[in-house]
């Protein structure tokens, strides 16, 4: 997982409320293999970004050249609502975003983002509306997210504090995901396992299935 400390990047406004996981990752992309170079970047918000013929909608902000390098998306409320479609966070990530800013996020989606090194930042609605206006006035303007100090610095220089779970913050800053955290206990896992195998040597494994039973 990439560490997240201070990010200064182009931000793109997305002034639509209740973007659900089905819009973030449309169902027809859901069963697609993710490989480097063939991931969910195209699928992300596909039907908002492209028309029925697959042509980019010129009026859609994300399609404007000024926002092409955006790494921050400033959304409206309830981003990520709907089904718990786990691929949705991957779609956000694969598109190249590192952070989302909005008035609220759906709970499961919020958790999935954090687990994948994506930072969802919750700010009061008037602040978010103000960010939209600034980004519209100066397409391509940058926002700074300072995670260690829990601050968002708007294009106009104003600073806005945000809340985040301290444990999650620590993991993001260090760039360690849940697997890395668990593997810090590797010695304990191995010791536990050895003891368990000794006490219950009959516990099953499925190796014989590979051998073709």
């Amino acid at each position: 997982m990439l560490p997240f400390t201070v990010l200064t990047a182009v931000a793109v406004p997305l002034e639509i409320a209740k973007i659900d996981t089905g819009m973030i990752l449309p169902g027809r992309f859901m069963r697609r293999h993710r490989r480097p170079g063939h991931d969910y970047s195209e699928a992300f918000l596909h039907d908002l970004r492209f028309d029925e013929k697959g042509v980019p909608r010129p009026e859609f902000a994300m399609n404007m050249p000024a926002y092409a390098k955006a790494e921050i998306l400033v959304t409206d409320s309830d981003f990520g609502c709907g089904s718990s479609r786990e691929g949705a966070a991957y779609a956000v990530m694969d598109y190249g975003l590192r952070a989302l800013i909005g008035p609220s996020f759906a709970e499961i989606f919020y958790g999935n983002c954090l687990q994948n090194g994506l930072l969802p930042v919750t700010l009061p609605e008037p602040v978010v509306h103000d960010l939209w206006a600034q980004l519209r006035n100066t397409p391509g303007a940058t926002i700074t997210i300072d995670l260690p100090n829990q601050q968002v610095i708007a294009p106009d220089g104003s600073a806005h504090a945000f809340e985040i779970n301290q444990l999650r913050k620590e993991r993001l800053v260090l760039g360690i995901d849940d697997i890395d955290v668990t593997l810090e206990h590797r010695a304990a896992i191995d010791a536990f396992e050895a003891k368990r195998q000794q006490a219950y040597p009959w516990l099953p494994n499925a190796a014989h299935v590979l051998a073709g039973h």
Binding site: E86, G87, N112, Q115, N116, D178, I179, T182, L183, I189, E193
Partner: peptide, 12 residues
Amino acid sequence: SMQLRHVLATQT
């Protein structure tokens, strides 16, 4: 996704 990946990678 996330939980299965964790079980695969750590057996926990």
